[in-house]
Simulated assay, not measured.
Amino acid sequence: MNISNELLFFFSALGVFNALLISFYFFFVKKSNNNSNFFFGFLLLMLAIRVGKSVFYYFNDDLAQIFIKVGLVACILIGPALYFYIKSTVRQDAKIRFWKLHFLLLATLSISVGVLYPETHDPLVLGKLHWMTIIYTIWIFYIIATGWVIRQTIGKIFKRNEKLSSLDFWVLSVFLGNLIIWIAYKTVSYTSYIVGALSFSFIFYLLFLLIHFRKTKSAIFDKSFKYSNKKIEPAEAESLSEQLNYLLDKEKLFTDANLKLSDVASRMNILPHTLSQLINDNLGKSFTTLINEYRVKEAQHLIESNANIKLEAVGYDCGFNSKSTFYSVFKKVTSTTPAKYKESIS
Score class of each variant (00 low, 15 high):
residue 257 A to E: 14
residue 236 E to I: 12
residue 332 K to V: 01
residue 303 I to S: 07
residue 114 G to I: 01
residue 286 S to M: 10
residue 90 V to A: 09
residue 146 T to K: 08
residue 238 E to A: 05
residue 321 N to K: 10
residue 145 A to S: 14
residue 137 T to K: 08
residue 178 N to Y: 07
residue 124 L to G: 08
residue 185 Y to M: 04
residue 336 T to I: 04
residue 196 G to D: 10
residue 113 V to H: 05
residue 11 F to S: 00
residue 148 W to D: 03
residue 275 L to F: 00
residue 226 K to R: 05
residue 299 A to E: 14
residue 203 I to Q: 06
residue 271 L to A: 11
residue 218 S to D: 08
residue 241 S to M: 11
residue 147 G to E: 09
residue 33 N to W: 11
residue 238 E to V: 00
residue 36 S to P: 00
residue 204 F to A: 04
residue 295 R to T: 03
residue 111 I to Y: 03
residue 250 K to N: 14
residue 255 T to E: 12
residue 313 A to I: 12
residue 240 L to C: 00
residue 320 F to T: 08
residue 257 A to P: 11
residue 210 L to A: 08
residue 205 Y to S: 03
residue 234 P to C: 01
residue 244 L to H: 10
residue 42 F to S: 11
residue 115 V to H: 09
residue 201 S to Y: 04
residue 143 I to A: 12
residue 48 A to F: 10
residue 334 T to H: 02
residue 93 D to R: 09
residue 20 L to I: 13
residue 181 I to D: 07
residue 242 E to W: 06
residue 325 T to W: 04
residue 267 R to N: 13
residue 21 L to Y: 13
residue 292 N to F: 03
residue 212 H to A: 10
residue 232 I to S: 01
residue 297 K to W: 04
residue 101 L to V: 08
residue 341 Y to F: 15
residue 69 K to Y: 03
residue 211 I to R: 15
residue 33 N to F: 13
residue 318 C to Y: 03
residue 270 I to Q: 05
residue 287 F to H: 05
residue 142 Y to L: 01
residue 302 L to F: 14
residue 35 N to M: 11
residue 12 S to C: 00
residue 311 L to E: 05
residue 24 F to S: 15
residue 2 N to M: 02
residue 217 K to I: 01
residue 97 R to A: 11
residue 223 K to V: 01
residue 325 T to F: 00
residue 254 F to G: 07
residue 169 F to Y: 11
residue 92 Q to V: 12
residue 68 I to D: 10
residue 204 F to L: 04
residue 222 D to V: 00
residue 131 W to M: 12
residue 156 K to Q: 04
residue 235 A to L: 09
residue 17 F to W: 02
residue 127 G to C: 09
residue 190 Y to P: 02
residue 104 L to F: 15
residue 15 G to M: 06
residue 103 F to I: 10
residue 218 S to A: 12
residue 77 L to E: 09
residue 76 I to M: 06
residue 144 I to K: 03
residue 59 F to T: 09
residue 8 L to D: 02
residue 271 L to Y: 02
residue 309 I to C: 05
residue 160 R to D: 11
residue 46 M to V: 13
residue 178 N to A: 15
residue 346 S to V: 07
residue 1 M to L: 10
residue 230 K to R: 05
residue 162 E to T: 01
residue 2 N to R: 01
residue 310 K to E: 12
residue 176 L to P: 02
residue 293 E to K: 11
residue 25 Y to C: 00
residue 183 I to F: 15
residue 77 L to Y: 02
residue 77 L to H: 01
residue 119 E to D: 11
residue 73 V to P: 05
residue 38 F to L: 15
residue 100 K to T: 04
residue 220 I to A: 03
residue 161 N to S: 10
residue 138 I to A: 09
residue 84 F to G: 03
residue 168 D to E: 07
residue 1 M to T: 06
residue 109 L to T: 09
residue 132 M to L: 11
residue 320 F to S: 07
residue 83 Y to T: 06
residue 82 L to W: 09
residue 21 L to K: 14
residue 125 V to I: 15
residue 311 L to Q: 07
residue 77 L to A: 00
residue 6 E to V: 14
residue 242 E to L: 15
residue 285 K to W: 00
residue 243 Q to D: 11
residue 40 F to T: 01
residue 47 L to M: 13
residue 271 L to R: 07
residue 107 A to K: 08
residue 311 L to G: 09
residue 113 V to T: 14
residue 293 E to M: 05
residue 280 N to R: 14
residue 76 I to H: 09
residue 84 F to R: 07
residue 283 L to E: 06
residue 252 K to Y: 04
residue 161 N to A: 06
